[in-house]
Design a protein around this nucleic acid. Structure first.
Lengths: 276, 276
DNA sequence: GTCAATACTTTGTCCGGACATTATTACTTA
DNA sequence: TAAGTAATAATGTCCGGACAAAGTATTGAC
């Protein structure tokens, strides 16, 4: 996830690890049967009901870091579900990096809040989420025919009509980024007024476009005269650049974005999980 | 995943999507029974055998973008496995973003190579993987007691002894990055000679440390005098900065790194998958 | 010929059980 | 007391089956 202002304290997580000598964890016996309820008549999958309730317990602190979830078989029994269902629920939490399973040892909570691994979210949503009052100024909103390079990038025929957007995004009145986007005209054709109120991804989603994956490239360069004027940053200041190609579920390119951020006001924060 | 030199062509994927009008895909009937073999006596899990062989077929092009995998039931039958096993195999490919499942429609290949979503890999491995001949110059390799700030970051007591490393990483003889690392002395204490031959993560892995997650923050700044000398970049040039906190499976901090990259020679390339 | 209802295909979810593998714990023995 | 060994606990893998839900293709009516 991306956040405004340089993250000043990345690691403030309180550690209470039991290692070496037998420093026992309080083990405040969190009884799942008291906390989790499943509704068989609900259309939402049972494993999902279980997973989200455990996740909520982790968020609320009822399940602190290091706490053990009961074993899968007992859990299944006390919830009136089968083990595969409970296992699927826990599995989804493992995928999110919230808990760790070790055979023979059980399942433990590792983070009480992993910043969800750099979600496919837009700058607008990110800023709105932390109450940074995002605003947008639309500089260009027009249809252009694809140049050779753009056609290549988006995987369309040369000369195809593309919507070209150029916007400046601000937070609390201060400019944060200059954003350029190219997307097929067939998807959306928003008015500038709409673009000033909502983020592009929000718009695409409301049109039923399902964002599925993206390739990003993050780099840096120094501000030139044009950047300087738009971003209120002196010439020669450090800028972050981000190029992003976004795909829908069918693997078709939905959007190409080329953005520039003020490094003094912005950094990319992301979490990632490893191997096993 | 991070790569040297600015990614010049992020999207060159040939599209052959069947949409709107019925542009049918060749459908070159890839018979799984001919291509996939499972060894029941092998210790490697059956679902994993299946998954990796399908993945190999995608990489090799036998399963091009858009190709449909046979339905799960037939697949299971022809492989002599149960449906849950085959489903688990395909599920792992879905998690990797290689294929997409749609009920009623089947399972299709979406990317023939997703750069695996920014793995927990070190710069050394990344460079070695693309034959960039990484070399390391060790500037500092000593034990220091943790300052207030560092103790806080690593989640250890103030004054704890930490190994401090400062290195310059080059590729093909040209400097790429200046790296600073802090890690508990209990983990490793490599000689400078060893550090010049191998990456830090490689070293940790060989010591049995299982990297599990990391929080990163990517930013930018301009080169100062000291940077200039180490990286052979003029003062005022754009630099990428990356701070990373790495955790092991128990949630304990394994390493804190503060690195600086030459933006002219390096960018962070990463893929991410969204929501559903 | 176009559109709507129907049948079919395929994945999504869920159950119950079985054995293997690995960590931990308790016990026995030197 | 200490170390090795056995018992126990918990997840990992795998099987077989069942029904639901969503998308696709076919058929029928107008």
């Amino acid at each position: 996830m991306a956040s405004t202002q340089r993250s000043s304290s990345p690691g403030r997580s309180p550690r209470n690890r039991a290692s070496g000598t037998s420093t026992r964890v309080p083990e405040s016996s969190w009884d799942p049967a008291d906390e989790i309820t499943v509704d068989h008549s609900s259309p939402v999958p049972l494993y999902y009901q279980v997973a989200s309730q455990i996740e909520a317990a982790i968020d609320s602190g009822d399940l602190p870091v290091g706490a053990r979830l009961g074993n899968e078989i007992d859990l299944a029994g006390s919830l009136g579900l089968s083990r595969p269902t409970v296992r699927q629920a826990i599995g989804s939490l493992v995928d999110k990096g919230l808990v760790v399973r070790r055979r023979g040892a059980g399942t433990q909570v590792v983070f009480n809040r992993v910043k969800r691994s750099l979600e496919l979210s837009s700058l607008f949503d990110d800023l709105a989420a932390v109450d940074q009052q995002p605003t947008t100024r639309v500089l260009v909103n027009e249809v252009r025919s694809a140049t050779d390079e753009m056609a290549h990038r988006l995987g369309v025929a040369e000369g195809t009509e593309l919507l070209f957007l150029e916007r400046v995004r601000s937070a609390r009145g201060e400019p944060i980024a200059r954003m350029r986007n190219y997307l097929p005209v067939t998807l959306v054709q928003p008015s500038s007024a709409v673009l000033e109120e909502r983020g592009l991804y929000q718009l695409l989603r409301s049109e039923g476009v399902r964002l599925h994956a993206a390739h990003q490239s993050i780099g840096a360069r120094v501000a030139e005269q044009a950047d300087s004027e738009l971003l209120e940053e002196p010439v020669g200041a450090a800028l972050l650049t981000m190029d992003r190609l976004t795909y829908d579920q069918a693997g078709t390119v939905v959007e190409y974005g080329s953005h520039v951020y003020r490094a003094s006001r912005y950094s990319f924060d992301l979490s990632l999980r490893g191997e096993s």
